[in-house]
Design a binder for these strands. Structure first.
Length: 429
RNA sequence: GUGAGUGUAGCUCAAGGGCAGAGCACUGGACUGUGGCUCCAGGGGUUGGGGGUUCGAAACCCCUCACUCACCCCA
């Protein structure tokens, strides 16, 4: 084979492409119901935007970005995530202003140069929602509820919500100091990466999956016991709001997000039905991020859903939103060459009425026409030859039931209502 | 970036040193204005690619590429 898709990227073909689209529509609807409005963001940005926001020493920035140069030598990057882009756009267009609330969501492809595996691709899709403005526990809880309720409603198999607080600029330094001291004292029990991380990003050590490290971490100080009064109250009120809303969660003192910008509330939805990449949605609060990107001092909270992972979960549960509707309502077949123009006219008329139809111009035998019609996914076949052409009718046959009827062609009420009435209601939405 | 497993027809898979095959799919016909069934016939392959061993390689060895899963990391 001469050409094939690059490693880690996938072609989505029907009917999977259609289910994927419906999944995206579901998410769009869910966010819209919670007051978010969509922004369409560029797929590449100045590389510095991501190094600044995601963090210099994160894996994403260190080794996973697709970097390239513009014609003028600018350093550009294919976006590895959406929050940085969205904030850049919000700042640039003055949507992030003190005292004002912006609820925005985005949806689209992200790029990370990683080794592909189950639930992990080099080009993948995320849908993310961000609330800019309020620094309010109820806002956090409401955002979390939006996704948790979606998960409940659609029945995501094995989904659990993990919850933690990362503290703020006031309390994190003290915790960091205590944690570093704890880790330094037990250096010999830690893996190589973790030892390096003590210096670069000690909180990430908490996340390490090496067994020895986890054992060592069992007695490590928990961030939640170092929270300053304000952060503590914020976190408690988030928990309380979730309790009152009957949103189940699991307190996870060692939950640390992989991006540096998170403060206060951090959360992650996981499912053990996913394989090694168990997170299907995640987010948190990022109170210093907008200002560090050159915007005003506006707090924010947001999350992102991994669409492919969501797809995998829904596929496993057998709840993918597949279309019940046939892709084509009617396939029209000319029974002789003289009827071809007649068929073309009917196609135009039906399409003007909003009825999807195709012409079977390649079939030279009636039997082949039937096979082609089925292959197109048509509900009906329409036949026109000398007889029909002569009296301005068309013969319609229901491919499922075998019922057949000759009716006036064109936009005749009889034809249109026949084609419409037999279409089963789209039960997928 | 590291490791393991797998690459044979469009798909699912046989053949484990001696003629590359089956089922499904595809094309044509039986069958010229009424399909799905059946029957007959046919097209399809540098066995992922390259090199080596051998009289002979899909098979054994080396390299390489791709896929899958895991590490890592994350949505």
């Amino acid at each position: 084979m001469k050409y094939q898709a690059p490693r880690g990227v996938k072609d989505l073909l029907p009917p999977e492409s259609e289910a994927f689209r419906r999944l995206e529509d579901e998410i769009r609807e869910t966010f819209t119901l919670s007051g978010f409005r969509e922004v369409r963001l560029p797929i590449f940005e100045s590389a510095a935007l991501f190094t600044r926001s995601i963090g210099e020493s994160t894996d994403i920035v260190e080794k996973e970005m697709y970097l390239f140069e513009g014609k003028g030598g600018e350093k550009l990057a294919l976006r590895p995530e959406g929050t940085a882009s969205l904030l850049r756009a919000a700042i640039e267009h003055r949507l992030a202003e003190p005292g004002r609330t912006s609820r925005l969501f985005y949806q689209g492809a992200m790029f990370r140069h990683e080794r592909p595996q189950a639930g992990r691709l080099r080009q993948f899709h995320q849908a993310g929602a961000e609330v800019l403005g309020p620094n309010d526990p109820d806002t956090d809880a409401d955002l979390i509820a939006t996704v948790s309720r979606y998960a409940q409603r659609t029945g995501i198999p094995g989904s659990r919500l993990l919850l933690n607080s990362m503290g703020c600029e006031a309390c994190r330094p003290e915790y960091r100091k205590q944690l570093v001291a704890y880790l330094e004292a037990r250096k010999s029990n830690l893996c190589e990466t973790c030892i390096r991380r003590i210096g670069t990003n000690p909180l990430r050590v908490l996340d390490c999956k090496v067994e020895g490290c986890q054992k060592t971490l069992n007695a490590a100080p928990a961030i939640t016991s170092f929270l300053c009064p304000a952060s503590r109250e914020h976190f408690e009120r988030v928990c309380q709001a979730l309790n009152e809303g009957e949103i189940p969660y699991i307190l996870s003192p060692r939950l640390v997000r992989g991006l540096d910008y998170y403060t206060e509330t951090a959360f992650e939805w996981v499912s053990d039905a996913l394989g090694a990449q168990s997170t299907w949605a995640a987010g948190g609060r990022y109170n210093g991020l907008v200002s560090s990107l050159g915007g005003p001092d506006v707090p924010g909270v947001g999350l992102a859903i991994g669409i492919e992972r969501l797809y995998l979960l829904r596929e496993q549960a057998g709840t993918l939103p597949l279309s019940a509707e046939p892709p084509v309502t009617i396939a029209l077949h000319p029974l002789d060459d003289d009827s071809r123009a007649y068929i073309r006219t009917i196609l135009t008329t039906l399409r003007a009425e909003g009825i999807s139809c195709v012409g079977l111009f390649g079939a030279n035998r009636l039997k082949k026409a039937f096979v082609s019609a089925e292959r197109e996914g048509a509900r009906f076949i329409g036949l026109a030859g000398e007889n029909e052409r002569g009296n301005g009718t068309i013969t319609i046959k229901d491919l499922k039931t075998g019922a057949q009827k000759t009716v006036p062609a064109g936009s005749s009420a009889e034809l249109i209502s026949l084609l419409r009435s037999e279409i089963p209601a789209d039960s997928a939405r």
